[in-house]
Amino acid sequence: MLYKSLISLYGSSLAGKSLPTEDLVWHFTPSEDLRLFRDYALDALQQAKVYLLDHLAAAYADTLHEAVAEEAAETGLPAMEILGEVKLPADIVWVEFDDRALGAARFNRASPVTRYDEKPIGTGLRGYLLDDRNQAHLRITMFHRRENSRVVDPICSLLVKRTAEGRLNYDDVVVDLSRSMVEYRLRSGDTLEMIHERRTVHQVETGYDLFIPYALFAMLVSPDLGGIIPTETETFTNKDTKTARKFGKSWILGARKSHLTIRIGPQAAAHMAERTARLEFERQARESRNGPIRHWVAEHERHYRSGKVVLVKGHHRGHARAPDLPTRVMGPRSDAVRFELSNTKPRTED
């Protein structure tokens, strides 16, 4: 669980107990900025209300994102505006899901975002830390641990400013760049252009999947929970707690002992099955247009530019209609059929 890894890593580094093999950033480019960020992040993680979405729950929230995105494209409104004002369940919230499994689910159901992908895109674990304690803005920090790699501090966070009325304005977002991570990347050999690309990618990924936590929050307050099933689950086991006490790991003792695991129920499963079938239908319609259905073509002459004239005998054309694909109907040209109305007035009987 990424949440547990971050608490263990940040706590041990701040206590001076981390190893270079476990925490390269801390030992390679130590700085006051890095210490301040980790001190803030550890405190926020310990206070956060924690949600862990299993792979099906994350995919379900993602299908809701696609549905809202379709409506947004039709109406011209931002997706977050269509979702409406959603309040966080606590001042600080952590939402985690499996990014690799989410990418595979998108690819397997032929999600529109994977139209040009040759394979699933997604790796490791992804977690959102949403901090709503500041009255001027909402701080969103996305952590991403890729497969077979260490935890690396995020290169930036997003600050969503509030309007005068106190509403979040997603058109007014400030990117808070991490100076410590810029220094780490420079010392690792990155150019400024490469760092800019990293920041852009992180910003885009943070913004795109931000809908998943908000969809979760909206479902949690809906009458039927939106088809999800939250279950309280132990985060740190009794063994973890005993070990923490024995070795003085106060950062683990100060964290929440449990979190909510989110799974889907029958209603959500039915929604996902229906949407998967519809996306597959649309994909087939795009990739293989069904030609004209089988019909009779009367005998006619075919005239070529060379002057050659060929008599084509009557024959059948087209193929049997596929029951699961839309049919392209071949009709006459718009100017081929004309309805001539007589100028003669209709007769009336005396």
Rank of each mutant, 00 (worst) to 15 (best):
I229H: 08
T261C: 06
L279V: 07
T206K: 04
H271I: 08
L225G: 02
K242G: 03
Y208A: 10
R198L: 12
L225V: 03
G226N: 10
N238V: 00
F217D: 08
H259C: 11
D224Y: 07
T241E: 14
L253I: 11
E232M: 12
T243E: 10
E205L: 14
E282R: 04
E280T: 13
K242N: 12
L225E: 04
A273G: 04
F217I: 11
T237H: 12
G254S: 15
E282T: 04
A218C: 02
V201S: 14
I229L: 14
D209P: 05
I262K: 02
R278Y: 13
R275P: 00
I252V: 14
Y208C: 06
I212S: 08
T276S: 15
K257R: 15
F217W: 13
A215I: 13
G226M: 09
I228M: 08
H271M: 06
K239T: 10
G207N: 07
A277W: 01
H259L: 08
K249F: 03
L279T: 11
F247R: 13
M272C: 12
E234H: 08
A268P: 00
A218G: 03
L225K: 14
K257W: 01
L225C: 02
T243K: 08
F281G: 06
L260N: 12
A218I: 00
Q203K: 15
T241I: 15
G254T: 06
E282Y: 03
A215R: 11
I262E: 00
P223R: 05
R199G: 12
N238M: 01
K257T: 10
Q267P: 04
T231M: 05
A255C: 07
P213Q: 00
S222M: 07
Q267F: 08
T237W: 12
W251R: 05
G226D: 13
E232N: 13
L210N: 07
K257C: 01
F247C: 00
E280Y: 04
A273K: 14
G254R: 15
A215W: 09
K239F: 08
A215P: 11
R275I: 01
I212F: 08
V201A: 12
L225I: 07
T237F: 10
G226E: 09
Y214P: 10
Q267I: 12
V221Q: 13
T243C: 01
K242Y: 06
R198K: 15
T276E: 14
F211R: 03
I264Y: 05
F281R: 10
R278A: 13
T241C: 10
A268C: 04
L210S: 10
R256S: 12
L216S: 06
G254Q: 15
T200R: 02
R245D: 05
T200P: 00
G226V: 12
L225H: 06
G227A: 10
H259M: 05
V221M: 03
K242I: 09
I264Q: 05
D240N: 14
R198P: 00
